[in-house]
Amino acid sequence: MDAHQDELSNPFSMDEDCRNCPALTDCREAIVHGYGDVGGEFVFVGESPSDAAEATGVPFTGDEAGQRLQRMLGELGFSRSPPDAEEPALQNAYLTHLARCRHPERAAHDDEVRNCEPFLNAELRMINPHIIVPIGQRALEELAIEYTTRRPESFDIEAEHATTIRGRGFELVPMRPLEEQTEAQETAFVDHVLQNVFSRDYRQTKGRRSR
């Protein structure tokens, strides 16, 4: 964890009473802001919190899908906690979503994702990661608009899973939705990062200072 960081949960002290989306304000249990190492070189971005993450207040925790990601983070050396930890001890990784609130009956609407863009943009600007991991098709398309020169509709999460896409200032390493992954796909993602990201100096994609 960054030496100057006090908290892993919502480390940038973002608004915990945001009311920009009236349809979500009345039904949400909590706002789930980002969690992790603010000096991390990897940022994992999902679509919106699960019901389990809403209960724990921490992205990608509390259910089988979250445990899958936490297990992968452990294999990559980003987590020192068991996969079922509700407040994982992360280093070099940050977890967040396109939308911070969960509707119990539907996915986030486009305007709700747009309302949350300032939160995500601020996190990415302050963290300045080398690698962004979009989890799922929607996260991939949204990040592609901002950080690649390809048309968003040209991306297919099934085909792009466990590959590296050169972006504008970042590299994207897409991941299939956690709840849909097979063990083989989980292994493929971990192996790709170990063999094709860690094995080279991915930091050359940015002019970032050494940490």
Rank of each mutant, 00 (worst) to 15 (best):
L73V: 02
N20F: 06
F78W: 12
E117F: 08
S48Q: 14
E112V: 00
S13C: 11
E117T: 05
D6K: 14
S9T: 06
V38Y: 00
R102S: 08
Q181I: 13
Q91N: 14
T187Q: 15
V193Q: 03
R102M: 12
F189V: 07
E123Y: 10
D37E: 03
T164I: 08
R106V: 00
P129V: 03
S154H: 08
P118G: 10
L194C: 11
T148H: 11
L90D: 10
A107T: 11
P134N: 05
R200C: 01
L140F: 08
R71V: 00
F60Y: 14
I127S: 01
H103L: 10
I127V: 14
L124G: 02
A93Q: 01
S9E: 09
R71G: 13
A89D: 14
L76N: 05
N10L: 06
F60M: 11
P83N: 04
P59Y: 08
T25P: 00
E186W: 03
C21K: 01
L90E: 06
L90Q: 10
I127E: 02
P177I: 09
E171A: 07
D2V: 09
I127K: 00
S154D: 15
C21G: 00
L178W: 10
G46L: 09
R200M: 11
A55V: 07
T163E: 06
V38L: 03
E64T: 09
G74Y: 02
D156V: 02
A162G: 06
A3E: 15
C27N: 13
M126H: 13
V133R: 02
G136Y: 01
L194T: 13
I165E: 08
N196M: 07
I165P: 08
F155V: 04
E146C: 03
P152G: 06
